[in-house]
């Protein structure tokens, strides 16, 4: 079973191109206010994550995903089915 601990480094790697400076990305990093992603970038980033983990993230859950940690927990929940 894939756990949050397994997921986190994979997300950090995927999100790395969006970081403004090296070492910026942490579990607590806010995807919108800190990374400065606009709605189009958020959608593109989520599509990458979805394909990476072979999951589909419902739009209904997006308001609850603010940080890297939130995203990791959402992926963990979806992978559990």
């Amino acid at each position: 079973m894939t756990t949050y601990t397994d997921i986190l480094p994979q997300i950090l790697e995927t999100l790395n191109p969006y970081a403004k400076k090296a070492g910026q990305l942490k579990e607590t990093t806010d995807l919108v206010s800190e990374l400065g992603l606009d709605s189009l970038q958020v959608m593109q980033m989520l599509l990458k994550i979805e394909d990476q983990f072979d999951i589909s993230i419902p739009l209904n859950n997006l308001p609850n995903i603010r940080t890297v940690q939130d995203l990791g927990q959402e992926i963990e929940t979806l992978l559990k089915g």
């Binding site: 959608m43 599509l47 394909d51 072979d54 999951i55 589909s56 993230i57 419902p58 739009l59 209904n60």
Partner: peptide, 21 residues
């Protein structure tokens, strides 16, 4: 309902998301 979005006019992405369901 649970709402999922597929890439605009991308039938492959639609297929992938239906398969996952």
């Amino acid at each position: 309902a649970e709402v999922l979005r597929f890439k605009h006019n991308d039938v492959t992405d639609l297929d992938k998301k239906l398969r996952r369901l």
